[in-house]
C-alpha cells in the first residue's frame, strides 16, 4: 500500500514533543506501571486480608517450596542486573552489547518459569491444586498473573533485543528494563507473602 508509506513519511509531531522533559515513551511506561500497581495491589490486598482472617492459611502456606522461591528471587534479581547493564550499554550506543545483556535477562526469565513449572507440577502432584483451598487459588492466580507478566516481558524483550543488535531503537532498552524491574519488584513482595510467612 503506497499511501500507507506516505503516511509513515509524514513525521509525527506529537510523538516528538516533550513538554514535561520526560521522553514520551518513558512517561507512558510510568503510567503503565502506575496502572499495574493497582491491579497487583487489588489482588495482593485481597489476599492479605483473607490471609489475616484465616489463621489456617499459615498451615497451607507451609507447603510452598521456600527454596524454589528463594532461588527464583535470586534469578529475577540477577536478570534485573543484566537488564540494567543492557541499559548502560544502550546509553553508550553499544547495541550488540545491550542485546547480549537482554539475552541474559530473557534467559533469567526462562529459568524463572522453569523453576515455577517444576514447583507447580510438584504441588499439583501432591494434591495442592487450585481447588484445595482459597489460599491455593490465590497462590496460583497471583503467581500466574505475575508469570504472565514475565512471559510478556520476555517476548517484548526479544523484539527489543533484535532491534538493538542492529543498533535500532536503543531507547527501548531502558523502557523494557523499567518494566522488567517492576516485575522483579512485584516478585520481591510475592516471595515473603507466599513463601516466607508461614
Amino acid at each position: 500500500m503506497s499511501h500507507a508509506a506516505d503516511v509513515r513519511a509524514h513525521v509525527p509531531i506529537a510523538t516528538g514533543r516533550s513538554a514535561t522533559g520526560i521522553p514520551t515513551a518513558r512517561l507512558a511506561v510510568w503510567w503503565v506501571l502506575a496502572s499495574e500497581i493497582v491491579i497487583f495491589g487489588g489482588l495482593i490486598g485481597s489476599y492479605v486480608m483473607l490471609r489475616l482472617h484465616h489463621p489456617h492459611w499459615a498451615e497451607e502456606a507451609s507447603h510452598t517450596n521456600t527454596v524454589a522461591g528463594a532461588f527464583n528471587t535470586f534469578v529475577l534479581l540477577t536478570s534485573s542486573l543484566a537488564a540494567v547493564l543492557a541499559h548502560q550499554a544502550a546509553e553508550a550506543r553499544n547495541g550488540p552489547r545491550a542485546a547480549r545483556f537482554l539475552g541474559l535477562t530473557i534467559l533469567g526469565g526462562l529459568v524463572f518459569l522453569m523453576v515455577k513449572s517444576f514447583e507447580w507440577s510438584n504441588e499439583i502432584a501432591h494434591g495442592f491444586t487450585i481447588f484445595r483451598d482459597v489460599f491455593w487459588s490465590y497462590y496460583y492466580v497471583t503467581c500466574g498473573l505475575h508469570g504472565l507478566h514475565v512471559i510478556v516481558g520476555m517476548v517484548i524483550m526479544g523484539i527489543v533485543a533484535a532491534d538493538a543488535r542492529r543498533g535500532r531503537n536503543l531507547h527501548r532498552v531502558e523502557l523494557i528494563g523499567i518494566y522488567w524491574h517492576f516485575v522483579d519488584a512485584v516478585w520481591i513482595f510475592l516471595f515473603p507473602l507466599f513463601y516466607i510467612a508461614k
Binding site: S35, I39, F40, G41, L43, S46, I130
Partner: peptide, 24 residues
C-alpha cells in the same frame, strides 16, 4: 486508572469462579 485495578483482579477471580470452579 487508579480505581479499575482491583476490579480487574476481581474479574480474574470471578472468571475463574465461573469457568474453572475456584471459590474466591
Amino acid at each position: 486508572m487508579g480505581s479499575v485495578g482491583p476490579l480487574i483482579a476481581g474479574a480474574v477471580m470471578l472468571f475463574l469462579d465461573q469457568t474453572v470452579g475456584t471459590q474466591f
